[in-house]
């Protein structure tokens, strides 16, 4: 059962991931990305990582992508025109991808997949919060500074006329 579900959701994720790249209209690309994220969330759930799965749906498929769609519609982006294919870049890119996949195919069989991966699953909001504010407090605070910088940066880059 789990295996079948895995394949279904993985195919869903990859298929719609490819659609993000190949579809010409930005709105359809963004909507395909939402479905791809949902597939990823389902994979997290299958791995018993409920918290990450839910966050994936709430934050990425929900908030971030809705924002994306808003911006695409506000800017009224037109359908992408067909571009000429840049052959050397294409070959270079393909070589990197093929090499990467070949390495993965070579490396993955060395793992014993039947073993449970997580020794100490952290699955509810309370324990994630406890970890963030105790063990991982320092990096968490640095993220606070990061968000401040990002806010300042957004204002600096997007305001029509700076005051």
């Amino acid at each position: 059962m789990e295996v079948a579900l895995f394949w279904i959701f993985a195919a869903l994720m990859l298929g719609f991931g490819a659609a993000v790249i190949f579809l010409k209209s930005p709105v359809s690309s963004a909507l395909s990305l939402v479905v791809s994220f949902l597939g990823l969330a389902a994979l997290f759930l299958l791995l018993d990582a409920f918290f990450i799965g839910i966050i994936q749906v709430l934050v990425y498929a929900g908030a971030v992508m809705v924002l994306f769609l808003f911006i695409i519609m506000l800017l009224d982006l037109k359908t992408e025109r067909a571009r000429k294919i840049n052959l050397p870049a294409m070959i270079g890119g393909l070589m990197v991808v093929v090499g990467f996949v070949a390495l993965l195919v070579k490396l993955l069989p060395s793992f014993d997949i039947a073993k449970p991966a997580l020794a100490r699953p952290v699955n509810d909001v309370a324990s994630v919060g406890m970890l963030l504010f105790s063990d991982y407090n320092l990096p968490f605070q640095v993220i606070g500074v990061l968000l401040l910088v990002a806010t300042v940066g957004v204002v600096l880059l997007s305001r029509k006329e700076l005051k």
């Binding site: 990096p139 640095v142 993220i143 990061l146 910088v149 940066g153 600096l156």
Partner: peptide, 16 residues
């Protein structure tokens, strides 16, 4: 984790 977080703080500042 610390490397990643600090690196992102630096890189995002530089993007801006």
């Amino acid at each position: 984790i610390m490397i990643f977080v600090a690196l992102e703080l630096v890189t995002i500042t530089f993007y801006v």
